[in-house]
Simulated scan of single mutants.
Amino acid sequence: MTTLSDLADSFLKLHQPGNPAILPTVWDAWSANLAVAAGFSALTVGSHPVADSIGKPDNEGMTFDDLLTRVTQITAAVTLPVSVDIESGYGLEPARLIDGLLGVGAVGLNIEDTVHSEGGRLREPQEHADLVGQLRQAADEAEVRLVVNARTDVIARKIGDESDRVDRAIARLKLAAAAGADVLYPVGVHSDAVQRRLTAELPLPVNAIALPDKTDKAQLADQGVARVSFGPFLQFALAAEANRLLALWQ
């Protein structure tokens, strides 16, 4: 029988620069089963799509328990590795976060540096790295190499002066890498030059966000990306198609 530890190890091995793991962002058992039927090897659960699906706002408008309820339904429906976007941690202790994720069968997490419960402030670079280290320690104590994807919002939120914004994002993520992250996520839709710089200068596999109906998978691979997820954009694309179909009947 495949253990959580085995599943986590196999998930980490999927992260290959130039041959990225494509992780469709799902929000319920239905969307997860769609991705499995399409042949994907792992999934990520997005906070924005889950919150939308239960009628609550993103940015920690739902609780961690709300999220775990949905993840339980997804992991019961599929046998693939599942990673979970835990936003900025819901104000909970790292051990509680890790215990909750492992308890519902997840083997990865995204942790971002925007603290939604504190007015959307950005964690200081070392503060975020320390949280990453605490999550790593909690997972190690549970004896599961849960895959920690450290995210920074510096570029996406256009924090600070543009001239050194990428420098600051890289510096933040290097601290997270040193603290025990497995994957680094400078979230945002980047130019070719910026994406290549990120993959060249960051010391761990890099996650890129993609628009499933617009982004070129081959280009991301050529840029050295190791992991691709869709954030809310798969749900948005499906909603646009649903709206088109529904409009035919108005």
Rank of each mutant, 00 (worst) to 15 (best):
G46M: 09
R145D: 13
T199N: 08
V228G: 09
G61M: 10
T63D: 01
D164T: 15
E127P: 04
A29W: 04
S191C: 07
D28P: 03
D28F: 05
G160M: 11
E141P: 00
V194I: 13
V26A: 11
D161N: 13
E124W: 03
L220P: 00
G91T: 11
L131Q: 12
G160N: 10
R168Y: 01
K56T: 05
A200I: 03
D52K: 13
K217L: 13
A171E: 14
R96H: 11
A106N: 01
A106F: 01
I98L: 08
A218K: 08
W249T: 15
P232L: 06
A200C: 02
L135F: 06
H15R: 11
E143H: 14
A210Y: 06
L97F: 07
L184A: 04
A21F: 03
L102P: 02
S47R: 11
V71P: 09
H190E: 10
L211A: 12
L122T: 12
L184Y: 02
Q137Y: 02
K217G: 06
S117V: 08
S10I: 00
A193S: 07
V183D: 06
E241G: 06
G108M: 03
E87L: 09
R165T: 03
G89T: 03
E241P: 00
Q195D: 05
T25G: 08
S10M: 01
F11H: 15
P57H: 07
Y90P: 10
R96A: 14
G188T: 05
S10C: 00
G188E: 05
T79W: 01
I86W: 06
A35T: 11
V228Y: 08
A218W: 00
E201P: 01
S229R: 01
V187K: 06
L198M: 04
G105M: 02
A156H: 10
L246G: 12
Q16S: 09
E141S: 09
G100D: 02
L12R: 15
K214E: 14
V183H: 06
L23R: 03
G55V: 07
D167W: 08
D192Y: 05
L211T: 12
G120E: 07
V189I: 15
G18M: 12
V154A: 13
L14F: 10
G224H: 01
A138G: 06
A139N: 02
Q73I: 01
L80S: 00
A200P: 03
G120W: 06
A150T: 07
A208Q: 07
R151T: 00
A176Q: 07
G100T: 04
D9A: 14
D65W: 05
A237P: 04
R70F: 03
L92S: 04
A37S: 14
L238F: 13
P24H: 12
V144C: 05
N19V: 13
Q223I: 02
M62N: 12
G91P: 10
E87W: 08
R244L: 13
A51I: 02
A29L: 02
Q195G: 05
T44N: 14
A210T: 12
L101E: 03
Q134C: 06
V104Y: 07
D6E: 15
D213E: 14
I22P: 10
L101H: 08
G91K: 10
S229N: 15
S83E: 09
P57N: 07
D65L: 09
L92A: 07
R136T: 09
G231F: 01
